[in-house]
Write a protein that binds this DNA or RNA. Structure first.
Length: 854
RNA sequence: GCCCCUGUGGCGGAAUGGUAGACGCGGCAGACUCAAAAUCUGUUGUCCGCAAGGGCGUGUUGGUUCGAGUCCGACCAGGGGCACCA
């Protein structure tokens, strides 16, 4: 019995593709183009199976489309700037650049071994000055176009590390590494004006019909368009007021307080006079900037002592609170509270004993008895207790309330977006320097284009807390390009999302002197199929959509949407293991003992098995790619990652499953190398006579070609694999004595090799050669199914009595309705189930089912 | 708190409103073997039954329909997102 030699074959066929330069492409107007892109990885150290799942899906598509005659662009690169490199620098004294480039070398090698069909000539690393210099130029152009600007904003500040923290780095109000209490601080930072395109970014989501529904929904929520009113409450005894934004101006007569954000100027003013307010604001700053945390926290407030005057009734005064649930970043940073119509306001009013005035009467309720209980009423209804708004529906009341505010001159209707401008400044070393010089007399001066790129200095130290660029002895000291006097470089670097917002354009002409060649971009863009994790559903994808618009406005391109099709794949998960002390264990540190109990390999101590979770280093539930590829080969890993779960769902890695795939690969190998009946030479014409038994198998071959093609088009890789397995099972059961069996078996084996090719390219190439074909399979067109062989002459109908299955009926396809009814009614099982009762009705669905109703 | 998704055998999962459990993993039985591994064959939702056959089954619970895993309502459970991780 022969065994498929993985090592030899995988090396051999990869070398053959490389020698052919099979996947290097150029623009070719004669052929339809197809741009397949997987989200490029951060070079974290080594490839894990999650990456491989992502890239395998892209490769399946790239190889499939290539076989269908498309000119396929399938590039790969590295999202190489980022925090982990700096953390590594702090932890192990290795320079971020060294660490990054070493990781890239390891991961590139791993990717090559997986046999993914990339055009490696287009490889890019975003930390390379040849990449980021174009980004600096774009920034200058955005600045010119008014799409980039500088302003103050709030951040989470770690006073020990002297650094800004991400929300996820704030744990219970403390810095993740230092443990120091986090402060909210104002910092002057650079922003991209994404809100400029808010309406268009929202409206165009409708055109992205090849994006997953949930991603579109997430983006819609993120942009968060709302219609409401911005208006002013005068403050009693002062000549200023407080401006609020509300989506429910119709409920103004239910108002019982005004609340401002802890960062609102009025709050700061109150804090200066009242230590209690100051202490409260201090307390709020501990919550951090995350909306989820703020919204979930108990609604707390602190009375400022100020009184706001109701815009519709100057004798009506409302208390002004500082409240922890009011966000400075949204609207005006101030609201009015209507407890009967908003849950947060209701909680707040209950806590502080404020009036609760119902103003919207739900349909069918009696105004005399309707009362607000535990829940605020936010649904539709009719206004009451609301003077001139009484009797109007909510929508109409909103319109009238706004009209009245406008008449009074204290406000107007306004559309608000939840979307805020994109803050791109990071107080970090390992990122793209922002090409700006700060001069005391000239202000912020752009670095002249001729001086680009602004390169990162290499001699930096990570001994001190804070930004290494800031405490570098010389780097930031430069002459002002405008006046020549001593000035200081911007020491912030870009958010790494900036690099990933245009890398797909760079791939179109990766070695061009400009950011990209317009002709190449016009040919290849948009990306036809983008594949990546759903974790990027909002930010990366929205930023890229913004960049495409911003670059188009600056004359770089002429396109709004960079990604025509998007697919978000699930994560790869694995069981977790802990020893008796609760320490996490790697899968290879455990084994299953004879009784089925799980024990440690060392010392046989009992292991508790946890549920399957996303593979992560911290829980050690990771499987090494090397071990799999060494043992079973790249094709096994690829096929397993495609076969067990639908691609959009999480996949559980199991050793058993991978072994099953390995068995299957060997079964296919033996099917071809040790056929049950001698195969005629390649290209032999179809024999005159084919036995009905063999004809059934031939039909299976064509049905499989048809179904697998359809499944690949629809991203149903797991089903495609299942169908190919059915084909292989069917070929294994072919009667070798049947007339025409050899020819049918050849057709079947060829189809199996071709259909498997996008998934197991090495194996398929080897099978193709075994089957006597000389040209590479990679240069062979996709097989076509013969439509005549897709439909059977006989069909099996299910027969039900009152909806319950009682038997089946084999009938010719499209048989006469009366014939079917009669045959069904004569079935013994039907007679038995009907218990002698006459049929009241017989439902016949052609070629599918008969339902006898008695 | 707000928004969203998912619940089907021991497990991963199939199923245009039409034969629930394809395909695989695991289990059980057998063949080959001195033995094991590898491989192959059969079997495998559950309950009753010697069998033929039948009852029950897609988180719970109502509804629509000749017919519901699929559509609609309520509930329960698990998961995800909510602006400096990438």
């Amino acid at each position: 019995m022969s065994r498929y030699n993985v090592r030899e074959n995988e090396d051999k066929w990869r070398a053959a593709w490389t020698e052919r330069a099979a996947f290097a492409v150029t623009e070719d107007s004669a052929r339809p183009k197809y741009y397949v892109l997987e989200m490029f990885p951060y070079p974290s150290g080594r490839l894990h199976v999650g990456h491989v799942r992502n890239y395998t899906m892209g490769d399946v598509l790239a190889r499939y489309k290539r076989a269908r005659g498309f000119n396929v662009l399938h590039p790969m690169g590295w999202d190489a700037f980022g925090l982990p490199a700096e953390n590594a620098a702090i932890a192990s004294k290795v320079h971020p650049a060294t660490w990054t480039y070493e990781n890239i070398a390891v991961m590139r090698d791993q990717l090559r071994r997986m046999g993914i069909a990339y055009d490696w000539n287009r490889e890019i690393a975003t930390c390379h000055p040849e990449y980021y210099r174009h980004e600096q130029k774009m920034f200058l152009d955005f600045l010119q176009a008014g799409l980039a600007y500088r302003k103050e904003s709030w951040v989470n500040w770690d006073p020990v590390e002297n650094t800004v923290l991400a929300n996820e780095q704030v744990i219970d109000g403390r810095g993740w590494r230092s443990g120091a209490a986090v402060e909210r601080r104002r910092l002057s930072q650079w922003f991209f004006k994404i809100t400029e395109f808010a309406d268009d970014l929202l409206a165009a989501i409708k055109t992205l019909d090849r994006w997953p529904e949930r991603v579109r929904l997430m983006q819609e929520n993120w942009i968060g368009r709302s219609e409401g009113a911005r208006f002013r409450f005068e403050l009693a005894g002062r000549d200023d007021g407080v401006e609020v934004y509300s989506t429910r101006p119709d409920t103004l007569f239910g108002a019982s307080f005004v609340a401002v954000s802890p960062n609102h100027p009025l709050a700061e003013e109150a804090a200066r006079k009242d230590p209690a307010v100051a202490a409260f604001i201090q307390e709020c700053s501990r919550l951090g900037t995350s909306e989820a945390v703020i919204e979930a926290a108990e609604k707390l407030g602190c009375d400022t002592g100020l009184k706001a005057i109701h815009p519709f009734d100057s004798s009506w005064e409302l208390p002004v609170y500082v409240a922890n649930f009011v966000l400075m970043e949204y609207g005006t940073g101030a609201i009015f509270g209507c407890p009967s119509g908003d849950q947060r306001d209701l909680d707040f009013a209950r806590k502080y004993g404020l009036p609760i005035i119902p103003v919207v009467l739900p349909p069918g309720e009696d105004p005399a008895s309707f009362a607000i209980g535990e829940e605020a009423y936010t649904g539709p209804g009719t206004l009451y207790n609301s003077r001139f708004l009484d009797g109007f529906e909510v929508t109409e009341a909103k319109r009238r309330a706004i009209a009245e505010l406008e008449r009074l001159g204290c406000g107007s209707g306004e559309v608000q977006f939840r979307l805020r401008d994109w803050g791109v400044s990071r107080q970090r070393y390992w990122g793209c320097p922002i090409p700006i010089i700060h001069c005391e007399s000239c202000g912020t001066v752009p670095v002249p284009e001729a001086d680009l790129p602004v390169r990162l200095p290499e001699d930096v130290s990570f001994d001190k807390p804070g930004n290494p660029l800031d405490h570098h002895p010389t780097w930031k000291h430069v002459a002002c390009p405008s006046c020549g006097r001593p000035a200081r470089r911007e020491t912030d670097t870009f958010d790494t999302f900036v690099e990933s917002s245009w890398y797909f354009l760079r791939f179109c002409s990766a070695r061009d002197d400009h950011a990209f060649d317009r002709k190449a971009v016009d040919y290849w863009m948009p990306v036809d199929q983008y594949i990546g994790g759903v974790e990027h559903a909002v930010l990366h994808l929205l930023y890229s959509r913004f960049f495409m618009r911003a670059l188009s406005r600056c004359g770089y391109a002429d396109m709004a949407e960079p990604f025509a099709g998007l697919f978000t794949q699930g994560m790869v998960c694995h069981e977790t293991y802990q020893d008796p002390e609760g320490k996490w264990l790697f899968p290879e540190e455990i084994r299953r003992a004879d009784g089925g109990a799980v024990v440690t390999v060392e010392g046989e101590r009992p292991v508790s098995v946890g549920r399957s979770e996303k593979m992560s280093k911290s829980k050690k539930n990771v499987v090494g790619l090397e071990a799999i590829v060494e043992g079973f080969g790249a094709d096994t890993a690829r096929l397993f990652l495609l076969s067990d779960s639908p691609p959009e769902r999480d996949l559980e890695w199991t050793d058993g499953g991978a072994e099953g795939v390995w068995r299957f690969i060997n079964r296919v190998w033996r099917l071809v190398t040790e056929p049950s009946v001698a195969l005629p030479p390649a290209g032999t014409a179809r024999p005159e006579r084919i036995d009905p038994a063999a004809d059934g198998v031939l039909r299976l071959v064509h049905k499989t070609i048809h179904a697998v093609t359809d499944d690949l088009e629809g991203f149903r890789f797991n089903k495609a694999v299942a169908r190919i397995r059915e084909l292989v099972n069917g070929l294994g059961e072919l009667d070798p004595a049947a007339e025409g069996a050899g020819w049918v078996l050849r057709r079947g084996c060829e189809a199996a090799a071709q259909l498997l090719a996008p998934m197991t390219p090495h194996l398929s190439e080897a099978l193709w050669k075994e089957l006597g074909h000389d040209p590479l399979l990679v240069d062979t067109p996709w097989p076509e199914a013969d439509a005549a062989l897709l439909v059977d002459d006989m069909v099996t109908l299910a027969v039900q009595v009152n909806g319950k299955l009682r038997g089946t009926l084999d009938m010719p396809r499209d048989a006469d309705r009366g014939l079917i009814e009669k045959a069904a009614l004569d079935l013994p099982a039907v007679l038995r189930a009907a218990e002698g009762k006459p049929p009241r009705k017989v439902v016949v669905v052609p070629n599918r089912i008969v339902n006898v109703v008695v």
